[in-house]
Design a protein around this nucleic acid. Structure first.
Length: 503
DNA sequence: TCTGGGGTCCTAGGACCC
DNA sequence: TCTGGGGTCCTAGGACCC
C-alpha cells in the first residue's frame, strides 16, 4: 500500500455503446444496446439511457428487447473500438511506462513509475487532465479511480461512473471498505458471494471479523487468504505492463442446436482452422489442444490432449480436435463448439523432433499448407456470432436457423445480405454520402445518412440490398482529425467475439 | 426468444518418478 | 507383503473477469 494515491484505474463509460452514439448523432441521448443480434445473443454493453430500462451486460437480447423495445440494437464493431482504444492507451502511455490494459476500455497506470503525482493533489490533477485529453481526442468520457492499490483504484473508478473521478486517500481504505458488500472485492462473484452469505458473511467488515483461518476453511487456501488480505486493504500487486498470453481459443454458439455428427465434425474442423490462424497471427505455437462442447441442456465439457511438442500446424491441431470429438457423446444436440490451444511457446518455429513425435500415429505428415488450404470451405451457416438477425425495428425470423443442419448448404441470399448490411455498420452511397445501416431484411436495407460531426439526426432512406450505389465503408473519425478505425476494419462482419465492456 | 466469446486462475485426482 | 512422502505433469471442471 502506497503512501500516495499513485495507482490510476481508467474505465471508459459504456464504451461500445458510447462509441456508437458518438459516431451516430441520431442515437445520442437515446437507449442503445450493443450485442449479438442472433436468437442466442446477449448484451455486450448498454448505454446509460438503456440501463434505465433495466438492460445490462450479459443479459439475453430477447429480455433486453422486452425491457427496451425502442432501443437501437447494434452489432459490435471491434475494429472500430480497437482503434479508439489504441488512442486512449496511447494517452495513458504518456503518463507512465507502466500501463496494464485489462480490456479495450480499461487499464491500470502506475503514476509513480512515471514520476508523476507525488501527492493526492498532484494525482487528482493528472487524472482530471487525462479525462479531458480522452474527451478531446476521442469524443468519449472515461472515469478515473485513484488509490494506493489496484483494488481500491478499481473500486474508486466504479464509484466515479459515469464521467467522474474518485480518489481514495491512503490510510482510509479499511474504513471505506468495511460497510460494503463483499461482492465489491475483485474475485468475489456470485458463487463465492453465496458461499460467504451462507456463513453469515455479507460485508467486508464481516470478512475481517471472520479471520483468515475461517475464510481459508470456507474458500480454500488461496482464495481465502487473498480475500482476507483484500478486506484489510492489503493489496501490493504491481502494475504489470506486458503479460504473455497463455492460451488462444475460438468458439461458436449456433442459432439452432446441431445434431448431425458430420456437421458437428465440420464445425470443429473450421474452428480448429480459425484457432490456428489466430495462434499464428500472434506468433505463437502451443502444446495442448482443447475441445469444448456445450450441449443442448447447457452442460459444458472439455476434452484436451497434450502433444509432445508445440505446434502451429493447422493439420495437427485439426486432427487432435477431431480425435477429442470422438470422445464426446453429442446425442441430444450441441449448442456450442470451441477449439483452443494452451501451453503456448513464444516461438513459431517448430521443434522438428517434438513435431515428429506428435505426429507419429496420425496418418500423413501434411505440411502447413495442407491444412490451410481447407480454410474457407463450408459455410458458416448458423453461427450466432456471425451477426445474423435483423436490425433496428425490422421484423425477425427470416434467417435464423434456416440453415438447420445441412452440412454444406451455401449461404442464402438473406444470410449474405444480413452479413453485408449488419445493423450499425458504416456505408457510403455514391450520391448521398456517408451513413450507417439502421436495419435490413426482406431484400431491403435502411440507411441513415449522418456523420459523427453532425448535430442533428440525418435522414433515412431504404434501398434494395444489391443497390450498386451503396457499399460498405470504414468508420469515420469521431473527432475532426482523429483516427478512423479503418485499419483492419472489416465492414462485412466477421464472426466477431462479443466482449462485455463498459459496465 | 434463456443464457456470447475470450481469457485467467485455482482445485483435485491420478499417473509417474525418485 | 497392511501401505511414505514428496514433486511434477496431465486432465477436467469451475469461478471469475470484461
Amino acid at each position: 500500500m502506497r503512501a500516495a494515491p499513485t495507482i490510476l484505474h481508467l474505465d471508459m463509460d459504456a464504451f461500445f455503446a458510447a462509441a456508437e452514439q458518438a459516431s451516430k448523432p441520431s442515437l445520442r441521448g437515446k437507449p442503445v444496446v450493443v450485442g449479438g443480434l442472433g436468437p442466442r445473443g446477449v448484451v455486450a454493453t448498454a448505454s446509460y439511457e438503456a440501463r434505465r430500462f433495466g438492460v445490462h451486460s450479459a443479459m439475453p437480447m430477447g429480455q433486453a428487447r422486452r425491457l427496451a423495445p425502442n432501443a437501437a440494437y447494434l452489432v459490435p464493431r471491434f475494429a472500430f473500438y480497437r482503434a479508439i482504444s489504441g488512442q486512449v492507451m496511447e494517452l495513458l502511455g504518456r503518463l507512465s511506462p507502466l500501463v496494464e490494459p485489462l480490456s479495450l476500455d480499461e487499464a491500470f497506470v502506475d503514476l509513480e513509475a512515471g514520476g508523476l503525482a507525488g501527492d493526492s493533489a498532484g494525482a487528482r490533477a493528472v487524472g482530471e487532465r487525462l479525462r479531458a485529453e480522452i474527451l478531446a481526442t476521442t469524443g468519449l468520457t472515461g472515469s478515473v479511480g485513484l488509490a494506493g492499490s489496484k483494488m481500491l483504484a478499481k473500486i474508486a473508478s466504479e464509484e466515479a461512473k459515469p464521467n467522474g473521478l474518485v480518489l481514495f486517500e491512503p490510510g482510509s481504505e479499511r474504513a471505506l471498505l468495511a460497510p460494503r458488500s463483499v461482492r465489491i472485492i475483485p474475485g468475489v462473484g456470485p458463487a463465492t458471494g453465496d458461499h460467504l452469505r451462507r456463513a453469515g458473511i455479507t460485508t467486508v467488515a464481516d470478512v475481517v471479523e471472520a479471520g483468515e483461518d475461517e475464510l481459508v476453511r470456507i474458500l480454500g487456501r488461496s482464495h481465502g487468504a487473498s480475500l482476507y488480505r483484500m478486506a484489510l486493504g492489503h493489496d501490493d500487486r504491481p502494475v504489470v505492463a506486458e503479460r504473455d498470453a497463455k492460451s488462444v481459443s475460438v468458439e461458436d454458439t449456433f442459432d439452432v442446436d446441431l445434431h448431425d455428427r458430420l456437421r458437428i465434425r465440420l464445425e470443429v474442423e473450421r474452428l480448429a482452422e480459425r484457432c490456428v490462424a489466430r495462434l499464428r497471427g500472434a506468433g505463437h505455437s502451443g502444446r495442448t489442444i482443447v475441445l469444448k462442447v456445450r450441449r443442448y441442456d447447457f452442460s459444458t465439457l472439455t476434452r484436451s490432449e497434450t502433444l509432445r511438442g508445440p505446434t502451429d500446424d493447422p493439420l495437427v491441431v485439426r486432427e487432435a480436435a477431431e480425435r477429442l470429438l470422438e470422445l464426446v457423446d453429442t446425442t441430444g444436440g450441441v449448442r456450442l463448439l470451441g477449439v483452443g490451444v494452451s501451453g503456448l511457446a513464444d516461438y513459431t518455429q517448430e521443434d522438428l523432433f517434438a513435431q515428429a513425435g506428435a505426429e507419429a500415429g496420425a496418418w500423413g505428415g501434411g505440411g502447413p499448407g495442407a491444412g490451410g488450404a481447407e480454410a474457407g470451405t463450408g459455410t458458416s451457416g448458423a453461427a450466432a456470432g456471425v451477426g445474423m438477425g435483423m436490425g433496428v425495428g425490422v421484423g425477425e425470423g427470416g434467417a435464423a436457423g434456416g440453415a438447420g443442419d445441412a452440412a454444406d448448404a451455401p449461404p442464402t441470399a438473406t444470410e449474405t445480405a444480413t452479413r453485408r448490411w449488419a445493423p450499425g455498420h458504416d456505408v457510403r452511397h455514391a450520391v448521398l454520402g456517408a451513413g450507417w445501416v439502421q436495419g435490413s431484411g426482406l431484400g431491403r436495407v435502411t440507411v441513415r445518412f449522418e456523420e459523427p460531426g453532425s448535430t442533428v439526426p440525418g435522414r433515412v432512406r431504404t434501398f434494395v440490398v444489391d443497390d450498386p450505389e451503396l457499399e460498405p465503408a470504414d468508420p469515420l473519425p469521431l473527432v475532426p482529425g482523429g483516427v478512423t478505425g479503418a485499419e483492419g476494419a472489416a465492414p462485412v462482419a466477421p464472426a466477431a467475439p462479443v466482449v462485455r465492456a463498459g459496465e
